[in-house]
Design a protein around this nucleic acid. Structure first.
Length: 207
DNA sequence: CCATCGTGGAGGTTTACATCA
DNA sequence: TTTGATGTAAACCTCCACGAT
């Protein structure tokens, strides 16, 4: 297979490289008698890069006509424009993936910390249930009977059905801080790792 | 329908070159 | 100044999906 040589630019000038004509390149390719010449690396000029970037911002893919026109404008071969767009798409996807990865790492860290904190609270609440059977209401700051605390079998939240010491109008208080279930957030996390992982965090799960 | 072919994009690799310790 | 390691990006290869015939 004949390689698509890119000897259309040679060293020199302010940008290290100056652009040779496409005719020059054709000539170079044909003067080797089919022998495999060493591949030279094309360096785009700043102006070429700028135009390509601008074009990429408008459209991440090119139809054949656009490709042809852009190649003409940049004095490049359509194939070079096509390759540039392929690589550019790959780079932009890689960047996006890296950003998502960083975000998920941070999120995982905060969830781990939150989980540790909640585990501690559960331990404390369990200890209270054994010894002094009271727990402070976060609403009224009055002591509640810890013996009224129950664990929801579905979501494993600690709840109390006591109504006496609760705020007016509230018939059931959820001690959300005692929630030790991390699978809910893990599921939410995996469902977020699609298109909108960077847009919003899931609100705390409700039973 | 089904097979074949051409085309284009994604993903991965190779290679030339630049940069830096 | 030289050299090896490393990063970057152009070019390439392979595979797959999709539409046309």
């Amino acid at each position: 297979m004949v390689r698509d040589l890119d000897i259309n630019q040679i060293p020199g000038g302010e940008d290290e490289w100056i652009t040779a004509s496409m005719e020059d390149e054709e000539e170079t390719c044909n003067t080797n008698g089919g022998a495999a010449a060493p591949r030279r690396k094309l360096r785009l000029t700043k102006e070429q890069s700028r135009l390509l970037e601008e074009s990429f911002r408008q459209n991440h893919t090119l139809n054949p006509k656009q490709k042809e026109a852009l190649a003409l404008q940049l004095k490049l071969r359509p194939r070079q424009v096509e390759v540039w767009f392929q690589n550019r798409r790959a780079r932009s996807k890689l960047k996006q993936t890296e950003m998502e990865c960083e975000y998920l790492k941070r999120w995982f860290g905060s969830l781990t910390e939150q989980n540790r904190r909640l585990q501690r609270e559960v331990e404390e609440l369990r200890a209270m249930k054994v010894a002094p059977p009271t727990v402070m209401s976060p609403h009224s700051c009055e002591p509640l009977l810890a013996s009224t605390l129950t664990m929801c079998p579905r979501c494993e939240r600690v709840t109390t059905s006591t109504t006496a010491a609760l705020d007016k109008g509230s018939t059931k208080m959820t001690v959300a801080a005692a929630n030790t279930n991390t699978t809910t957030t893990a599921a939410a996390l995996s469902s977020k790792v699609g298109t909108s992982a960077l847009q919003s965090r899931p609100s705390s799960a409700a039973c």
